[in-house]
Structure formats: structure tokens, C-alpha cells
Design a protein around this nucleic acid. Structure first.
Lengths: 155, 155
DNA sequence: ACCCAATCGTTCGGGCAACCAACGTTTGAT
DNA sequence: ATCAAACGTTGGTTGCCCGAACGATTGGGT
């Protein structure tokens, strides 16, 4: 999306969906860059943060809480265990389950990722005043709220 | 992202980058659904719209104007020619080039896609008042502007 | 007139986030 | 005891974005 050097003053450029997805792609790039500078990606942060917030859990529970698909958990957890940021232990009470828990190194890494993430927020919102930032997040929250309620089966 | 039925009241949920990327993913889903209901996807719309706005052009020029990578043009144009929405003709003046042009059916399809797209805007912004919609697009425009200027080499 | 750099279309490949289908193992409720 | 459900795992698919390479063709410089 950044490559093509030609101007594109096209019809769709002002549509909310376009503005949204485009700014989001910039945001994602910034976040990913921040994370990759410490050798991680989005899933890693989400998992580490979820682990700290809710404590050790099975892969399935972890996936539900962090919004990561079960089939993507395997690779993500593997990558984290390879880096010793997380431990995968069999659940003695239920042999189907692995219990994933945060290591000390994992906690340190989480601190680093949080720092990067905070910097990224600022980079993203650079051109906006504090009040504008406030309004933007408020509007986005409303939108997200509305649409996740419709998709997440109400009950 | 919509699948897991569990609540995820996690740390990062209020971060602007999260709100942005998540609402964007909802937006993208809505757009994609709208398009696919008439057998198209994003690239198709972008190409048809660009063709109508700028007239027939080579694949390369078309790609630059619509922000689609050259290497992705082949497949997209193939799909459009298969559906007779677009014509690929050799350029008599430059045998390296294909000249892509819109057919009547392509124009009709474009009208359909525009209609879907308009409906999608409304669906996306449903919970916002007209003034709020205005403010949101203005804020997003500012952000997008700022960040695309930094990436697109100024000159 | 010639050469070389640039452009065009094309193919193949990768990355990412999200998702789906299937399977064997294990569990728990009936 | 059985059977549905959950768990982890493997191996796909999709859409969008990007890069490397290559043959064919072109056009500018000299």
C-alpha cells in the first residue's frame, strides 16, 4: 500500500471504511515494528498479557480470552516456549490439557512490549491533540462495541 | 476474532491501536461481505472504480493508481476478464502494454458495488450521529494524511 | 546505429491475521 | 458402558500486501 509512487485521488478515498482500514494498516505496521524490534509479534503480546491478567490456563481458555483461534495457538505457544517466555506443562487433573504459565523472562518481555506499545500509541496519534485523541477513542469504542455485540452471539 | 465466545476484558482493549485495528477488521468484513454478495472482492471494486475515473490504462498505471501491487494485477484482471467486466487488449503503440478498459457490464457491476459500499458505510457507522460520523472521518483523515506523508517518499 | 537502463507483464514466493475441517485423545455426564 | 463434548494438533484456505526474478519491449544517450 505504501509502494506505488503515483497519486490516487480516487472515489473511495474518503469513505469511512477506507479511512478506517488504511489508518488501521498504518497502526498495525507501527505496532508490528515496535514488537519485532524486541523479537515478538502481536499474538505473543496478547498471550503474555492475558497470562499475566488471568494467570495460567489451558491453551483453549487462553485462546478464548485473548481472541486467538485455537489452531493458531500451537505455533504461538511454541514460539514463546522456544524463547522460554512461557511454560507448557501437562495438566495432572485433565490429561487433554496443557497448562500454560508465564516465566520470569516472560514477564520481563511483557514489560518491554508494553513500553513499545505505549510509544506506538503516541506515534499513531501524533497529529492529534489530547482532546481529539480522547474523542477518537470514544467514537471507536462505540463502534467496536456495537459491532462486537452483533457478532458475538448474545448468549 | 468473532468466534471465541468468552469475554476478553484485557489490558490492551482500550488502546487506540487496538480499537482502530479491531473496528477496521469489522469494517473490512462488512465490506467484503457486501462485495462477495455480488461475486467480487476489494481489488475488483478498486480496479473498476479507477478505470471509470481515469479511463483505460495499462496494468502498471492501473496498479499505481489503485494502489495494487503489480504482481497482484494479473490475477485480479484475469478474474475481471473472466466475468467480462473488463477487456484486455494489446496496446498497438507499445507492445509491452495491455490496455485495460471497462465494459458495459463492468460499469453496471461498478454501480452495484458502489451501492453495496454505501450501504456498508451506513452499517458501519450505525451507532453514530451524523455529526459524530463527520468528526470521526475528519480525525481519521488527519491521521491517515500524517502517516501516508511519512511513508510515501515526499519527492 | 547501437547499447543500456527502464518499463511492462508475468510467475513464483513470502508474510500476516483470521478462519475452517478433521483427527485422535481424553473427559464427564448419563 | 457409551457417547457427546472438549482439548491439542496438523494442515489447509482466504484476502491483502510485498519482494525477487525474468523475458520482452521500449526509448534516450551517444
Amino acid at each position: 500500500m505504501e509502494n506505488p509512487p503515483e497519486k490516487t485521488p480516487a472515489t473511495w478515498e474518503s469513505l469511512p471504511t477506507w479511512l478506517l482500514t488504511q489508518t488501521a494498516s498504518h497502526a498495525q505496521r507501527l505496532v508490528a515494528e515496535g514488537f519485532s524490534s524486541v523479537g515478538a509479534r502481536g499474538y505473543h503480546y496478547r498471550l503474555l498479557a492475558t497470562l499475566e491478567e488471568f494467570g495460567p490456563a489451558s491453551q483453549a481458555a487462553l485462546g478464548r480470552r485473548s481472541g486467538i483461534h485455537l489452531s493458531d495457538m500451537v505455533a504461538a505457544i511454541n514460539e514463546l516456549t522456544d524463547r522460554k517466555l512461557v511454560e507448557r506443562a501437562p495438566d495432572p487433573a485433565d490429561r487433554r490439557c496443557n497448562i500454560i504459565s508465564l516465566t520470569a523472562a516472560g514477564k520481563r518481555q511483557l514489560r518491554r512490549l508494553e513500553k513499545r506499545l505505549a510509544e506506538t500509541q503516541d506515534e499513531l496519534l501524533a497529529p492529534l491533540s489530547p482532546e481529539e485523541r480522547q474523542r477518537l477513542t470514544e467514537l471507536l469504542s462505540r463502534l467496536l462495541d456495537h459491532h462486537s455485540r452483533r457478532t458475538r452471539t448474545p448468549e
